[in-house]
Design a binder for these strands. Sequence first.
DNA 1: TAAAAACTTTACCTTAACGTAAACTTCACG
DNA 2: CGTGAAGTTTACGTTAAGGTAAAGTTTTTA
Lengths: 128, 128
Amino acid sequence: MIEIQKTYSISDLAKEFDITTRSIRFYEDQGLIKPSRRGQTRIYSPQDRVRLKLILRGKRLGFSLAETRRLFDLYDADRSSAAQLETMITLIDEKKIHLQQQMEDITVVLMELSSVETRCRSELKDLT
Amino acid sequence: MIEIQKTYSISDLAKEFDITTRSIRFYEDQGLIKPSRRGQTRIYSPQDRVRLKLILRGKRLGFSLAETRRLFDLYDADRSSAAQLETMITLIDEKKIHLQQQMEDITVVLMELSSVETRCRSELKDLT
DNA sequence: TAAAAACTTTACCTTAACGTAAACTTCACG
DNA sequence: CGTGAAGTTTACGTTAAGGTAAAGTTTTTA
């Protein structure tokens, strides 16, 4: 059985994720994606596409590209030495703490926004 | 009964929140805080302090200063016209949707990190 | 096969959010 | 009373994350 790997052009991905090709090339520049080439032309694999998705998710969470790269490197890392593994666990814990803080912040802000919204709606009703 | 309002110097706040005085002055420049003055010297009220706290929370959530300012303006806004109130509700809803998306992202990433961490710990155990 | 469409590199430009330095004023205190 | 700490303004520098433009190649497609 022959496996056929779907591929994407740079503008396929740009369209799909609604970003510019410039951004995609920039992410490559920063070492976040490494598409293969046919001649000079970049060819993106499904794996590359997943990476891109992860980059964008990271951005939504306020990660810098450098941080996201850090996480990718962690993920790809050499998992043979105990030292490496321990560094990795430490970094993961740091990230987790940060994200939990963010969750709390979001919860609070969401409640506050809802409360302001409720007041707005009631004032709006009183205005009629 | 006489109310005594506690005040803070710029470096009080800088120390408390572990930021530079430069940042605090910059936030003022961008219209996010408006401390009073004694001569040239800035005097911060408890309300100013709260604002600063909110700015920093916004930053943790990935808000730009401009966005945070937007939210402050919303909050302080003239609440007399129906149009104003409707704009406000719309903006609040947008923010809420954005934050909910962020919550989902965080939940997913936290689970993924935990899973990687578990694998790390088990590999670490096998190494001994 | 000619022209349009998509791709490439190189290089300079832009914005946000401060950092840093200079030059000056104003207090607190030993 | 001078001196050091903390405050001020002004202004230029820096970094991240792209935008934009030029100039060239390759690939489609009418």
